[in-house]
């Protein structure tokens, strides 16, 4: 396949991204560059100055809703990718509706409780739709501990599955971006096998 054929294939698909923080914003940028047809992004936060250390936002966007700022940034990367945004707090009652029609969904939420709730909801209410989760991104270095594994046909996880973000172990840009890229790479791999 040449570059145009790959982009044409990926242009047929709709990918959901739950969370527009370090994982979600960086993953979205990579998926847009890859030529995904539609991105559906959900988040309820606003851009803060401290987010600029690792998230795909710019000086001048602080105070904006992350969904709106990210849509703006993605349109500057690749206007052909349609971006649907939902400025909501995700809960078990709205997830399957917000991500309806998505071929793959990226879990890019912050707290482990939200991750659990989201994965449980998608896996039980949207059976057959692959979820690419992120787990274990904190700190720096230790490249060799970052991994991607397929649990089964509909569940994948990227990260070290060990390090928890805390006051002593912050999420630093490079390690967050590696896991975001692993998630995007997994999405592309899944979609390249889909017809």
């Amino acid at each position: 396949m040449n570059a145009e054929e790959i982009a044409a294939h990926l242009g047929n698909f709709r990918v959901g991204i739950a969370g527009a923080g370090g994982l979600g914003s960086n993953c979205s940028a990579l998926l847009a560059r890859s030529g995904i047809g539609t991105l559906v992004i959900a988040d309820h936060d606003r851009v803060e100055r401290s987010n600029l250390s690792r998230q795909y936002y710019f000086e001048g966007q602080t105070g904006m809703l992350k969904t709106e700022a990210l849509k703006e940034n993605l349109s500057r990367i690749r206007p052909e990718t349609a971006v649907v945004i939902h400025n909501v707090f995700l809960d078990p009652t709205n997830i399957s509706m917000l991500f309806r029609g998505c071929h793959v969904i990226v879990e890019a939420l912050d707290s482990s409780e939200m991750k659990e709730m989201f994965i449980e909801t998608v896996q039980t209410e949207m059976k057959g739709i692959p979820v690419v989760a992120g787990s274990g991104i904190a700190g720096w270095g230790r490249n060799e501990t970052l991994r991607s594994r397929q649990i089964d046909e509909t569940l994948y996880v990227c990260g070290d599955e060990t390090t928890e973000v805390s006051g002593d172990l912050l999420p630093l840009a490079a390690r967050v971006a590696i896991v975001a890229a692993m998630q995007a790479n997994t999405v592309v791999e899944i979609l390249m096998k889909m017809h």
């Binding site: 370090g22 879990e107 482990s112 991750k115 787990s135 991104i137 569940l155 599955e161 928890e164």
Partner: peptide, 10 residues
Amino acid sequence: VQMLYLMSGG
């Protein structure tokens, strides 16, 4: 049985 560990941070 498959287990996946969920660590905070996103």
